[in-house]
């Protein structure tokens, strides 16, 4: 005859094993959270998807408080200088988009305390398209855009 106490002991150790396994998998999750670079936003082929991933919204409002400087004609699409200036309080980020690129989101600049609404960089443009600057400040996203004619595409291939 089997001892009933031995059965209880077995069940108890099995339950403890299951708890241990749950903790073990739980420990693996924080590593995924650490990934800061928003890969899904940068690899999105549709602008709407990229913006939802990056800013949490795909709606933005054109504003004359955002100034975007880019050439009318870019002879070399591999190097298009872009400057964004925004006269807005409490800017969280400034993002630059080239609508004609395979992945439209080019760059996003998160501004810390003390940083002014100004960034300048050089981007690649695959073809003639609209460059859009998005300025996120709290709940609002303001924009400015400019058409840039590209004579030689800059994304190769």
């Amino acid at each position: 005859m089997t001892d009933p106490k031995r059965r209880i002991l077995l069940q108890g150790s099995l339950a403890a094993g299951a708890v241990g396994a749950a903790v073990g998998t739980g420990l693996l999750t924080p590593r995924a959270v650490l990934a800061a670079w928003p890969e899904s936003a940068f690899t999105a082929k549709q602008l709407d998807d990229a913006l939802k991933e990056l800013l949490g919204t795909n709606t933005y409002e054109p504003s004359d408080r955002v100034k975007l400087k880019a050439p009318d004609i870019a002879e070399n699409g591999a190097v298009v200088p872009v400057t964004v200036e925004a006269d807005v309080e409490g800017i969280d980020s400034i993002s630059i988009i080239a609508t004609g690129n395979q992945t439209p989101l080019v760059a996003s600049f998160n501004l810390g305390a003390g940083a002014l609404g100004f960034v300048s960089t050089r981007i690649k443009m695959a073809k003639t398209a609209t460059v859009v600057a998005l300025v996120k400040a709290g709940d609002q996203v303001l924009s400015a855009s400019k058409d840039v004619k590209v004579t030689i595409g800059g994304c190769g291939g």
Partner: peptide, 11 residues
């Protein structure tokens, strides 16, 4: 002060 997140679309 500033943190830039870039794709390969930067020159």
């Amino acid at each position: 002060v500033m943190k830039a997140l870039w794709s390969g679309g930067v020159s």
